[in-house]
Design a protein around this nucleic acid. Structure first.
Lengths: 172, 172
DNA sequence: TGGTGGGGAGAACGGTCGTTCTCCCTGGTG
DNA sequence: CACCAGGGAGAACGACCGTTCTCCCCACCA
């Protein structure tokens, strides 16, 4: 058990709490209590709360990347990959407990653009946009970069709408 | 001075701070210090911090409504009104100190959908969507409600893109 | 067998949170 | 003139924040 089991429990409960109630809304006490872990153990695995936050975001980033997989190199495959990604976003919107995009929400709580949290958000969004742009390009789109920007914009709008309005707007 | 001058100062500085640093990020002490007001004065005008938050959001809502004005009843006027509103969003994106939509950000910090803050957010968004839908209808759009939903979705996407990416995507 | 390190239990820190309190001063209005 | 609401000044509250600390237990491995 290299990932130390206690650390894993810590990260798992923290992820759920941070997403459901906001980063600033849950304290370290709350996390360690719900993870059945002592304060000392927490600080043995994470230098501070902020590191736990970026660990959460990195985990979400990794999960999304794994779920999406690598976009295929051929045109037909890339197009299907894009449609699949779009459908995945649509499904996510209607899932129970959906509370918007973790990265957008986390960014709303962290004004400093140079903070590690904002850096993690930027990394994820950069990956998403370049991956989508690559797929658009391989699918034969004449302006992949612009199309990707538009796709991400639509995705963001859908995320907000799914949180603050009815998720029936999954027709992006 | 019916609006009590001190209360106005309080609300003005609170609005700036809440928007720039997030609701949970600024404390009452911070607000009263920056407004050059004592704690007692604050609690004489607002029952608590939450009321200050909804007062802020209501102020933004009122400002947006006033800025937009009433959509004209004729088709040509309604179309122009929609274009004007869209252009206003685009301008806002590129303005200095832009940090996304206050309502989206505030909602991200308040998980409880029944909280007064979320209620204020919902009111504003409801007004926006119905106003846009009405304008679409008067402009001759065959499906005003769907068009308004789409318009709001694009607006939301543009808001987060303007905050987390370059605001050059003002071409919505 | 003797470490060594991960984990549990809990006290304590300084700071900040939102909130309430008392006291006094001042400017207008009856 | 008497009054009193609006505001300034500041102490105090209990709770929570993130963080650090000591002490002890136990499983594993050399």
């Amino acid at each position: 058990m290299r990932p130390s089991e206690a650390r894993e429990r810590l990260l798992r409960t923290a992820s759920a709490l941070f997403y459901a109630e906001g980063v600033r809304g849950v304290g370290v006490d709350r996390v360690i209590a719900e993870a059945s872990v002592t304060r000392a153990t927490f600080y043995r695995h994470f230098p501070g709360k902020e590191d736990l936050v970026v660990a959460w975001l990195r985990g979400v980033d990794a999960a999304v990347r794994e779920r999406a997989g690598d976009p295929p190199p051929d045109a037909r495959g890339a197009a299907a990959w894009l449609l699949g990604l779009t459908a995945a976003v649509g499904e996510q919107l209607c899932g129970p407990g959906f509370r918007g995009c973790p990265f957008i929400n986390a960014a709303a709580e962290h004004p400093d653009p140079d903070s590690p949290v904002r850096r993690a958000v930027r990394e994820h969004r950069r990956w998403l946009e370049t991956a989508v742009a690559g797929a658009f390009g391989r699918a034969g789109h004449p302006e992949p970069a612009a199309a990707a920007r538009r796709w991400v914009l639509l995705r963001d709008g859908a995320m907000v709408a799914g949180y603050l309005a009815d998720p029936a707007a999954a027709q992006a």
